[in-house]
């Protein structure tokens, strides 16, 4: 964003040094990225060092809280014997499939409810009522209906993803500025064109917000699903670690959850930044 602004000012004075301005601003962006990473990692690094020292000094018992180095060793050994990739892959796979199904269902129902008054009157009260049930409460029912196989896990995740995406799509569509719709009408757009050229782009920000919180919930639900019963996956590692009294396995699994969850969120964030660069947002 800073980059664009720079271009603007360059354009005002004389167009020639535009390229130089761009380069400079990319460098500036890099610098600020390095700075954010540095600032953000001071405290975690300090804490990890203290933790390591306390463990080595024997202040905390290692069968309760293993040292960071032990956890890292655990992850490395799992990576070496190959079991790590299977766990990571199956968990990510479940989240992604559930996420796609939940999002698609939310898009279909959400646009329907957003565009048609009748559909809103029919569906929305029911969906709102379902929403007030904590989604984890469905777990036993799904297991009863679908067994503890993949289907029930993916369904649970999809249910968790569905609500935030749905709610944001509906509020995005209902919140489109009437004034912009009038502009479209003045140019003789029909309903389909209005949807494509005005309503969709205008509700995109809200949709993406919904996707990101849906993804967060997806990760939460995969833990619940895998805790219930699984023979593979990061959630299974949690249970396994507990049964084997191996805190390093539990902590390794937690850390892997954090890393993969962050990566998937970061991908969505990139998509968001790319498609919403036009937004007039407050910049810090």
């Amino acid at each position: 964003m800073a980059e664009q602004q720079n271009n603007v000012t360059a354009g005002y004075v004389k167009p020639a040094p535009e390229a130089r301005g761009k380069k400079a601003s990319i460098k500036k962006k890099k610098d600020s990225l390095v700075k954010t990473v540095f600032m953000g990692s001071i405290i975690p690094v300090l804490l990890i060092i203290i933790w390591e020292i306390l463990c080595r000094a024997g202040v905390v018992p290692s069968n309760q809280l293993p040292a960071p180095s032990t956890i890292v060793e655990k992850i490395i050994s799992m990576a070496q014997d190959g079991s790590l990739w299977g766990h990571v892959w199956i968990t990510t796979y479940r989240v992604l499939v559930g996420f796609v199904i939940g999002t698609v269902a939310a898009i279909v129902l959400g646009s329907f409810v957003g565009f048609y008054k009748k559909a809103e009157q029919l569906f929305d009260p029911m969906i709102q009522a379902f929403r007030s049930i904590p989604s984890l409460a469905w777990v036993p029912l799904f297991i009863l209906w679908l067994g503890i196989g993949e289907t029930s896990k993916v369904t649970m995740i999809a249910v968790g993803v569905f609500f935030p995406v749905y709610l944001n799509i509906v509020s995005g569509i209902l919140g489109v500025d009437r004034k912009l719709i009038e502009v479209g009408k003045m140019y003789g757009l029909n309903t389909l064109q209005l949807v494509k050229r005005i309503i969709l782009p205008a509700s995109l920000p809200s949709f993406l917000v919904g996707m990101r919180s849906g993804l967060g919930l997806g990760w939460m639900f995969v833990v619940a699903a895998e805790l219930m019963g699984a023979s593979q996956g990061l959630g299974f590692l949690l249970v396994f670690g507990q049964n084997m009294s191996s805190p390093e396995t539990i902590l390794a699994s937690i850390i892997l959850f954090a890393i993969i969850g962050k990566i998937t969120d970061w991908i969505l964030k990139l998509v968001e930044d790319r498609s919403l660069h036009w937004q007039d947002r407050l910049e810090k």
């Binding site: 912009l180 140019y187 003789g188 995109l204 937004q279």
Partner: peptide
């Protein structure tokens, strides 16, 4: 609404996701 009618509103009402050029070519 007649599509041969043009309207300049009291506010600009530009589409924020389109560049200036795309806003002008909109209709």
């Amino acid at each position: 609404i007649h599509d041969t009618t043009g309207f300049i509103f009291q506010e600009p009402r530009l589409l924020p996701w389109l560049s200036v050029l795309d806003n002008v070519t909109f209709g």
